[in-house]
């Protein structure tokens, strides 16, 4: 029986997050092999063991820190070598790391603003830039990046986080054009509120969506090589409305 993801290796960046975990499980159930990468190695080893036992797929664990001053070039090379060992294997990338310090804390402490920008933007650009040549040379792969609706419009509640995601969204538009020639698709998934450790118990969260469903949507969008998607889908309309409100009024609204 061939499964939809047989012949693919999904590299999951930020593998400790609940969406990444669910994504990895689903991809492996669909026949993919996995490279799970992140900082909490002990935790990711647990996820790896779990997925191996459930699916029998090959799962490797790599240390990865989004901080661009760590060795991203070496990391990309290690991924290349892993995938190159299997003839004709596709390399796919799911980028799921992110950091969301509260805006209040950020306002008090600039180092937190810096951290949000480093992890959400610079770190993502750094690793994607290093992986791009690998993806180009292997051709045909898929990149899915989990970003946020917060990048669509700046709001007082989380504008540093939002601006980093906005930058990333723009970067991905360019990367999409660049990789298109090599048959590699880039999918931007703009998530609304997800029921994750990052948002658990935060005030003002409504209609939080389970991470498992988000993971399923990400994988489905990758299969179809979608360009930009919202999750849950209704956020497309919410954001269309929010974006249409003139700045002059928006600044007075409580949703800002």
């Amino acid at each position: 029986m061939t499964l939809p993801w047989t012949g693919h290796t999904w590299l999951v960046l930020g593998a400790s997050s609940s969406v990444a975990r669910a994504f990895a499980r689903l991809a492996a159930e669909g026949g993919a092999d996995l490279l799970l990468a992140g900082r909490d190695r002990a935790d990711i080893e647990r996820t790896a063991a779990d997925i191996r036992l459930r699916t029998g797929r090959s799962v490797d664990v790599l240390y990865f820190d989004a901080d661009p001053y760590t060795d991203h070039a070496g990391f990309a090379e290690a991924c290349r070598a892993k995938v190159a060992a299997v003839e004709g294997q596709y390399l796919d990338v799911f980028l799921a790391f992110g950091a969301m310090p509260s805006q209040e804390d950020i306002d008090r402490d600039f180092t937190l603003a810096q951290q949000a920008i480093t992890v959400n933007y610079t770190g993502a650009v750094s690793i994607l830039a290093r992986l791009a040549p690998v993806l180009e040379s292997r051709r045909g792969g898929r990149v899915v990046v989990l970003t946020s609706v917060a990048g669509d419009r700046g709001r007082g509640k989380n504008y540093v986080y939002g601006s980093a995601k906005a930058g990333l969204n723009t970067y991905l538009q360019g990367l999409r054009g660049r990789l298109h020639g090599a048959g590699v698709s880039v999918t931007t998934v703009k998530a609304g509120f997800l029921d994750t450790a990052m948002t658990y118990g935060l005030p003002g969260m409504f209609k939080v969506a389970p991470p498992g469903l988000c993971a399923r949507a990400c994988l489905a969008h990758a299969a179809k090589r979608r360009e930009i998607a919202y999750f849950p889908g209704f956020w497309r309309f919410v954001m269309a409305i929010l974006k249409a409100i003139p700045e002059r009024w928006f600044k007075r609204l409580s949703i800002r």
């Binding site: 400790s16 609940s18 975990r21 909490d40 002990a42 935790d43 450790a197 658990y200």
Partner: peptide, 10 residues
């Protein structure tokens, strides 16, 4: 007050 950890460290 509930916490819902996803890993041992949490």
């Amino acid at each position: 007050l509930a916490a819902r950890p996803e890993r041992l460290g949490e």
